[in-house]
Simulated scan of single mutants.
Amino acid sequence: MEIAPFDLERWFAEVEPDADIMLAESGVRPLPADRFDTDPGELGYVIPTAGDPEFRADVGALHDRTADETLFTCGTQEANLLAFLALADAHAVVVTPTYGSLTALPDAVGEVTEVPLEEPEWTLDPDTVAEAVRPETDLVVVNNPNNPTGRAHDEATMRAVYDVCEDNGTYLLCDEVYRMLAADPTPPVASFGRYGVSTGGFSKAFGLAGLRFGWLCGSAAVVAAAENWKDYTTISPPKFGQHVARQAFERREELLAENRELAAEHRSVVVDFLEERDLSWSDPDCGVNAFVEVPEGFAGGRSFCRSLVEEASVVLAPGEAFGRPEYFRIGYGLHREELEEGLSRVGSFLDRHA
């Protein structure tokens, strides 16, 4: 099996270590460890290796699934990998733009047809998905709320896509890592029925990326197939991650309310900046990501982002990493002082290149 280099992660690996400000981080600013009990006891394997059954039952219940229909993973990234290994074979339909692995992983094991969101509102048309689905289609893949645009697809849209999948005997895999940042989250796809599979985790909405703790929810057969593959990847989720994740889950109303407030306040800061600079964006309605059009005078997102990091030591994500070279992704979930300093440097950079 061959897989393409992960363009976004290779970009970050190249420029982030030496840069002053990371203005492309896709999650909420990390919470300090001292807000939690950080002593999990002995650092052995999590037993059973699927994750603590009681905790799995609690997470599963949010998806109308049981403990046996819930698998804990090392982040949402592993959850998605296991879903593709378990379910993808011949053909997948992937809604784009999206996080790079959601296209690259199914492409490594089969054929992929991309269905683009409809600009400028970045809406998803279920009829377009239906046209792309074939009799042999294993999976339809959606990231909701979407990364990089920050736009959320409503329940009616997602149920219409699920109906397309159900009629074809095709699974609908939805990466929902930003879902709980919404004030009124749409129901998870795993709750729709047999063919719904949801992945998520504590990295983005909770601001706990360092835990590397996520989950996959779906039918018992899907979870069993994913767990079979997990025996060959990480075996069990991290003991430390599960220990802190359980506390964060129990305090989720408090933590998510705090993070939603931060996301709303920081969105307003970015709106003011973009309006002052007359730059258009994807007008996100959930999460802390947005797609912004590349200013005039630059060949594309990578040209703009490279010039910016070299001159101003600020990292943005080039749109080429999402198949849209006319955009760049900005993340506004970082600490307020970093956000304001980063935008100030971007503004000065634009003044020099106007």
Rank of each mutant, 00 (worst) to 15 (best):
V94K: 02
G193N: 13
G201E: 12
Y99Q: 08
N146V: 01
P185S: 11
S203T: 05
V189Q: 09
E155R: 05
D163M: 02
A190S: 15
D163F: 06
V95G: 01
P188F: 13
D127I: 07
L87K: 09
V177G: 00
F202W: 15
A83I: 07
P126Q: 03
P120E: 03
L117Y: 01
G75W: 12
R159Y: 09
D167H: 14
N147C: 07
R194I: 10
L181R: 03
G196E: 11
P185D: 09
D89P: 01
G75T: 13
V94Q: 03
F84H: 09
T73Y: 04
G169K: 12
P188E: 14
D107M: 09
A190E: 15
A104G: 01
M158Y: 05
V133L: 13
G169Q: 13
P97N: 02
V189I: 13
L139P: 09
S203N: 08
D175R: 09
P187V: 10
V161Q: 10
Y99C: 01
W122I: 00
Y195K: 11
P185E: 14
D125M: 02
L172H: 12
T128C: 03
L71N: 14
E118Q: 06
Y171V: 11
E114D: 08
E136Q: 14
G169W: 15
R134C: 05
L181D: 03
V177D: 11
D89R: 15
A160V: 05
G110H: 07
